[in-house]
């Protein structure tokens, strides 16, 4: 089976700071892959390179069978409809209601007719998926951190993406809400049968949601295994994370 995302020899640096060095990885359909690493290890840079929010220095990135560096802006926009992205800061549009936030991705990918017929139902279903139907006419500022995270997830889901990328999905949340978000990520994957790339340093989240973990240390793929196997590792650099 062809991987949904394949990264080959990816390099990215900011001046003299080499953030990613010859990084390789692949995610298969329906799989949840977690990238574990310290703050500043290049996790968020990696995920932003994959969605083409940042340019890479060298390397190959195949997303859903397409080399994203060879796509023009229209092709890239079409591809982005199939890739959901949950931002660390949620990135909800402050000046829009929750309904408008969720409808926003539809305006580019659905025709006016399609939006007229189906936008309302799509918004309601996405909100039901995250258990926040009652917030539809509220503003983001009226919601708690956990609720905002759920709404951001609903927005990432509205186009039914084949891959969802989570950038630190539980950062800044209390342990109970973090667990709720992790459970939500699992239920979403079950419903939409999507693959997921989870960037995190929250071990509980990674334990709950991932099938496989890549450890990113100093911009390189240091280790790759299941969460349980990595936890049992005697390698001091890996142990440091789990102690």
């Amino acid at each position: 089976m062809e991987p949904v995302i394949q990264i080959k020899d990816l390099n990215k640096s900011f001046g003299d700071n080499h953030v990613l060095r010859n990084f390789n990885m692949a995610i298969n359909a329906g799989e949840n892959l977690a990238i574990l690493g310290k703050s500043g290890s290049g996790k968020s840079v990696l995920i932003k390179c994959i969605i083409s929010l940042m340019e890479v220095d060298s390397g190959e990135m195949i997303v859903l069978g397409k080399d994203i560096q060879l796509l023009n802006s229209d092709e890239l926009d079409s591809l982005r409809a199939e890739v959901g992205f949950l931002f660390q800061s949620n990135a909800l549009y402050d000046s829009m209601t929750i309904r408008e936030n969720l409808e926003f991705p539809l305006r580019r990918h659905w025709s006016k007719e399609e939006r007229k017929k189906g936008a309302d139902a799509a918004v309601k279903e996405a909100l039901e998926d995250v258990g926040l139907s009652h917030t539809i006419d509220m503003m983001p500022a009226e919601l708690s951190g956990g609720m905002r995270k759920r709404i951001a997830l609903a927005r990432a889901l509205i186009l039914r993406p084949k891959v969802i990328m989570y950038d630190e999905p539980t950062t800044g949340l209390d342990p109970i809400t973090s667990r709720e978000i992790s459970n939500l990520m699992l239920s979403v994957q079950k419903k939409y049968k999507s693959a997921a790339l989870i960037i995190s340093h929250d071990l509980n989240c990674i334990k709950m949601t991932s099938n496989r973990v890549i450890m990113l240390i100093e911009g390189t793929r240091y280790a790759e295994d299941t969460y349980e196997n990595l936890r049992k590792s005697e390698d001091p650099k890996i142990k440091e994370f789990f102690d």
Binding site: A91, D94, F104
Partner: peptide, 16 residues
């Protein structure tokens, strides 16, 4: 404010 809270990136990711 939209730039630093990644709202502009979110727009780009949504294809707008």
């Amino acid at each position: 404010s939209m730039r630093v809270t990644e709202q502009i990136d979110a727009m780009e990711v949504s294809g707008t």
